[in-house]
């Protein structure tokens, strides 16, 4: 099944507010990091075309608002998502706790990789990445895996789950001077 049809993958990024979802998306799509991001309201999306096993895949990445209030809104929005990326901040364990959202960071790390990995494995071997949106560590690899798995999912034509695949990505903002650059 070489490049037959253009594939559109809808990926949504979830996570507590301020864990760096927007940073992550922008680093991946635009290869840029800014410490000027604001809180995302509603949802934003960017698209990026990637090659996955000779197939041209258009990834449509939706960046969502972190506050749980907004999460309840977009039922239509979540429908049809091929993949979902959970992000938490490694420095703020609460972000891991809530929904299992994501963020690990900085030198004062509070969620161990072991713990997060354990969680991922318990949920059906979800891939787990530790990333830094600031220094672009692991971001590319993480999203590549996202695309790959989502694509595999699609070809398998499995029974349709709400979220067929979950890829957990932890965002390590690298070593910004203070806090995480989100």
């Amino acid at each position: 099944m070489a490049s037959r049809k253009k594939v559109l993958l809808k990926v949504i990024i979830l996570g507590d507010s301020g864990v760096g979802k927007t940073s992550l998306m922008n680093q991946y799509v635009n290869k840029k990091f800014s410490n000027q991001y604001k809180a995302t309201i509603g949802a934003d999306f960017l698209t990026k075309e990637v090659m996955v096993d000779d197939r041209l895949v258009t990834m449509q990445i939706w960046d969502t608002a972190g506050q749980e209030r907004f999460q309840s809104l977009g039922v239509a929005f979540y429908r049809g998502a091929d993949c979902c990326v959970l992000v938490f901040d490694v420095t703020v364990p609460n972000t891991f706790k809530q929904l299992d959202r994501n963020k690990i960071d900085l030198e004062n790390r509070a969620v161990t990789a072991k713990r997060a990995q354990g969680w991922c494995q318990s949920k059906g071997d979800i891939p787990y990445f530790e990333t830094s949106a600031k220094e672009a560590i692991n971001v590319e690899q993480a999203f590549q895996t996202v695309a790959k798995n989502a694509l595999a999912q699609e070809t398998e034509v499995e029974l349709y789950n709400e979220f067929p695949d979950q890829i957990k990505i932890t965002n390590d903002s690298g070593k910004p001077k203070e806090g995480c650059g989100c």
């Binding site: 559109l8 809808k10 604001k38 309201i41 509603g42 949802a43 934003d44 999306f45 449509q60 907004f70 809104l73 977009g74 239509a76 929005f77 049809g80």
Partner: peptide
């Protein structure tokens, strides 16, 4: 036809912030 965007969820911010953002 290009993925159903008719939920217009991406407009959320416009309304919420009165187009500020």
């Amino acid at each position: 036809h290009h993925g159903d965007y008719t939920h217009f969820y991406f407009c959320y911010r416009w309304f919420l912030l009165d187009f500020k953002r």
